[in-house]
Nucleic acid binder design. Structure first.
Length: 368
DNA sequence: CTCGGAAATG
DNA sequence: CATTTCCGAG
């Protein structure tokens, strides 16, 4: 019976409409195709979710390059994950095993040298437009399939609220539920209308510049990836040419933010015009047995002065990309070039959001 | 700590 | 199929 698993995760915040940028992933990301309303959350989804909330900054946070994140409190993360999956005996060891499985799937990478540091392979991840902001409704495009439906709301064991999922990957149903088939069967070619953008980056250190997210000031945590102008060419060939999911060539993501409204291709007319107020972010964690991370007064990591994104991405980002990676499991890919060496921002160690005073980190043996 | 093989599970 | 669990090796 019951596992009293309180899903303390997302439902903590009301999840206003204004969430973080809409991150979306390719089909393979959430492969619910087979399971209609019950798609268990995947670990990496969960991680992303955590990363998205400041509440968990003490537990996990973006650090380093684009998709790099550090698990500050493996225990807590494991616990949360356990809660989400109703696995009381979960611990970092197990969780990490699952994470390791991602290596082969190429969803994650391990940043060697750094304890608990992994990196998302966004090379495969597709950034989609973000959830329309009702406040401005500036996004003409965007949409996403609307899988929600009716189908089965009960995702996890815990009484998850729709808003929870809605926060991230689920699907911004703002498109409209017109003719939703019982089982959203994704039309092969129809490709819904989701404008996806393939982020070919991944070169990571290559550019070696910028890194800190701070995308949404007021919001706090955004993934450190999309802060660049759309310098990527028209979608990189071989970016995600998996034999299974074929993405339309029209991948471009209008990732404009009010703050970054200075993007080159600014389609949104009233983009900056509408910037909803920041969420209060006060009440969180309703039923957490182990409230570990004090919300903290909010050192204000996010809103920071911004990394002055004046610097455009490396022009020559050679993402040559693996022209083809059919079924080879070879890990060629561009892997983190920097990673190999240590992915260190040598030379650009700006203001790393690495809160030193972490607190309770018993494990901090003399790191050097 | 990190890496994976292997068996088991829903 | 995606973990979960267990575990030996490095």
């Amino acid at each position: 019976m019951d596992c009293n698993c309180v899903s303390d995760l997302l439902l903590t915040s009301p999840v206003p409409a204004l969430w973080t940028p809409g991150f979306a992933f390719p089909d393979w990301a959430y492969k619910p195709e087979s399971s209609p309303g019950s798609r268990q959350i995947q670990l990496w989804h969960f991680i992303l979710e955590l990363l998205q909330k400041e509440e968990y900054q003490n537990v996990i946070a973006w650090q380093g390059d684009y998709g790099e994140f550090v698990i500050k409190d493996p225990d807590e993360v494991a616990r949360l994950w356990g809660i989400r999956k109703c696995k009381p005996h979960m611990n970092y060891d197990k969780l990490s095993r699952a994470l390791r499985y991602y290596y082969n799937k190429r969803i994650l990478h391990k940043t060697k040298g750094k304890r608990f540091t992994y990196k998302f392979n966004f090379s495969k991840v597709v950034l989609v437009n973000y959830p329309l902001l009702e406040v401005g409704g500036s996004s003409p495009f965007l949409l996403a399939q609307g899988p929600f439906g009716g189908g089965g709301p009960g995702p996890d064991c815990a009484p998850l609220t729709p808003e929870t999922l809605q926060s991230l990957f689920s699907s911004p149903r703002l498109a409209e539920p017109p003719s939703r088939s019982p089982l959203y069967e994704r039309q092969p070619e129809a490709e819904k209308l989701r404008l996806d953008a393939a982020l070919p980056f991944l070169g990571s250190g290559v550019s070696g510049y910028s890194k800190a997210p701070a995308l949404l000031g007021p919001y706090g945590r955004a993934a450190p990836f999309p802060e660049y102008p759309w310098g990527w060419g028209p979608y990189v060939p071989g970016a995600l040419p998996l034999g299974g999911s074929k993405l339309p060539a029209a991948l471009y993501s209008p990732h404009f933010y009010p703050g970054l409204a200075q993007l080159p291709p600014p389609p949104p007319p009233a983009a900056a015009a509408a910037l909803p107020p920041p969420p209060p972010a006060g009440p969180e964690r309703a039923a957490a047995p182990r409230p570990a991370p004090p919300p903290g007064p909010g050192p204000g990591p996010g809103p920071g002065p911004g990394p002055g994104q004046g610097a455009p991405p490396e022009p020559g980002m050679a993402l040559g990309g693996p022209p083809a990676e059919p079924a080879s499991d070879s890990e060629l890919e561009i892997t983190d070039v920097s990673g190999s060496s240590s992915e260190n921002e040598a030379g650009s160690p700006p203001p790393p959001p690495v809160p030193p005073a972490a607190r309770g980190r018993p494990k901090g043996p003399a790191r050097s």
